[in-house]
Amino acid sequence: MHCDINDYKGNTVLSLSGEVDMHSSPMLREKLLSLIKNKPPLLIVNFRDVSYIDSSGIATFVEGLKHVKAYKGRLQFSELPQSIMDIFSFSKLDKVFEICGNLDDAVGR
């Protein structure tokens, strides 16, 4: 897995690529929690180049979401490939996370 942190129209975007699994989750957790520490009102995670996510990866986002909700911020997922969307729909996690199309959708909501 590879992580990049960028700015899109004044919002922080964490772009991921590769497999988000038990091996890469600790690194993701470190990046995500350090971004959340600054309490951004909107944090976008771009999944465009993610090929797989397992339960360790999802748990990392659940932890992140709990932190974000605590300060009334928002965590949005954008550009989910179909295979990743299937994992989220299968497990009804589309009811938990805000999932949107592209970065403009994420910013515009």
Binding site: S55, I58, A59, V62, E63, L65
Partner: peptide, 12 residues
């Protein structure tokens, strides 16, 4: 009972 699990752990 599991509303406060550590590190985002969950059960499907």
């Amino acid at each position: 009972q599991m509303s406060n699990t550590p590190r985002g752990m969950f059960l499907t």
